[in-house]
């Protein structure tokens, strides 16, 4: 028993201290955080645009909106219906063929395009969940469609989708680890790299897992306090 504990301890020691290996995790973490941050932003921009198209298409008779709606639906169907690793391989080999592409850009674009489809559906469902009476009440007062959307519908929709949006961001942070397959030095890749140096892969991957867990726990806490802040108008 003592022997085993000692060897485990040694394994973790070797995966962290010699040759300043902790710096490898840190640089991987930095990469993962940057990719996640930009991917979230790209995802939100794509998601909002697609959701706006899909929501206006419900009532609009404009031909261009109908076409955009079909394109949006195609995008959502394909992205949600295929594994992210396949998407990454296609996007990477199709677009980022130049050898000096910035890995952060590659990762953020791949993950952002993926996340956008989910964010779009979350936002669309959030808007659809608001009773039509809210829109009617706004319009009956003389507010325009846009004013009612902005001041009445969207704030309620945003409050309703906050948990789902939080989940999406948390899984996005975790899924950025897939990006390691295209030679981006994110946290996952760096853990594998340390493992290849020490000939003992379990400790570095456990360390990576702990770092991912810390990030997601922090995000969960952040979303939780955000939701509490938004709950002040609830019945109490």
């Amino acid at each position: 028993m003592m022997e085993w504990l000692k060897s485990v301890g040694e394994g973790f020691y070797n995966a962290w201290f010699p040759e300043q290996r902790y710096l490898a995790y840190l640089s991987g973490l930095r990469m993962t955080l940057l990719i996640s941050l930009f991917a979230v932003m790209i995802g939100i921009v794509i998601g909002v645009l697609i959701a706006v198209v899909r929501v206006t298409a419900r009532t609009s008779k404009l031909f261009i909106i109908k076409v955009l709606d079909k394109i949006a639906l195609f995008y959502i169907t394909v992205i949600r219906g295929t594994p992210m690793i396949v998407q990454i391989m296609i996007i990477y080999n199709l677009i980022f063929t130049s050898p000096d592409t910035n890995p952060i850009v590659v990762g953020a674009v791949c993950c952002g395009i993926n996340s956008g489809a989910y964010v779009a559906e979350i936002i669309r469902a959030g808007i659809a969940s608001i009773p039509v009476g809210q829109m009617e009440a706004g319009r009956s007062l003389g507010l325009t469609y846009t004013m009612t959307m902005r001041t009445i519908i969207l704030p309620q929709a945003f409050k309703n989708i906050l948990p789902a949006l939080g989940n999406e961001f948390i899984s996005l942070v975790k899924e950025t680890s897939v990006i390691s397959v295209i030679a981006v030095n994110d946290l996952m890749k760096m853990a594998g790299y340390v493992g290849s140096r020490t000939w003992d892969v379990i400790p570095p991957y456990v360390i990576a897992a702990a770092i991912y867990l810390t990030m997601t726990l922090f995000l969960t806490w952040l979303m939780g306090s955000f939701e509490k802040m938004m709950a002040k108008s609830d019945r109490h």
């Binding site: 009773p131 009476g133 009617e136 009440a137 009956s140 704030p155 409050k159 108008s233």
Partner: peptide, 11 residues
């Protein structure tokens, strides 16, 4: 206009 289900803005 006044509605059956009030439709006040909850937030």
């Amino acid at each position: 206009m006044v509605f059956q289900h009030f439709n006040l803005f909850p937030l």
